[in-house]
Amino acid sequence: MALHVEPDLDGAGPPPAIRAHGLVKSFGTLRAVDDVTFDLAPGRIYGLLGPNGSGKTTLIRLLTGLTVPTAGWAEVLGTRMPSRPNLGRIGYMTQTDGVYTALTVSENLHFFGAVYGVDGGEPVEHALGIVDLAGRRSSIVGTLSGGQRRRLSLACALIHRPPVLFLDEPTVGVDPLLRVQFWAHFRALTDAGTTIVVSSHVMDEADRCDELLFVRSGTIIARGTGQEIRVQAGTADLEQAFLRLGGNVEVTR
């Protein structure tokens, strides 16, 4: 059962940064994403929350145009996806690190910079600074810890300073201190106008988002701020709220 969140038609706010309309993705008989419709406003952090296998990654892949919808459409910054030129305005941090382990940290950044059309040292230094990896710039990625690779993966998604950022479980394997820094940086980006979609199955990160979209079995079962959702579900605990709104679903912590 899909919760349709109809677009704001009074024309008051800015145009949405990301739109989905009736998005469906089927793999055989499985509907991984099942009739999802929403508008996401620019300059905000949206949290996609749901258990493993609920369709979060497939939804992100549909929004980035990496997979073609079975039905419906997705739009980013006013352009229907998939659109290759539009990918230059999107940053995507994949769930796997997706970095070249035989190359150094700085070679990875220079490579993705060149691919996005932002060559040279300045963007690389900027990205290194954000993820605090400047001291490891010459290290071969294969020698880095899991958390360091995750940081590099984020840096590669930020290198071209995209106005829209999709982060698929960005803080997995990242230590608590750095996680705080990550979120501070996400906030700084949205203050500058960037729209961020973060997927997570960790509920304690949810309160850092401006708005939450609860995903279950490929559909959005609830949407709102953490507070709104707590009120709606009649509980002070987001995890409990998820269980009440979505039925008896086990949530991984």
Binding site: T64, L66, R84, P85, L87, G88, I90, Y92, T94, Q95, T96, D97, G98, V99, Y100, T101, F112, V115, Y116, G117, C156
Partner: peptide
Amino acid sequence: TGGTLERLMATPVT
């Protein structure tokens, strides 16, 4: 398998 192709396909590379 390392996820870099996925990432590469999410860039303007053809």
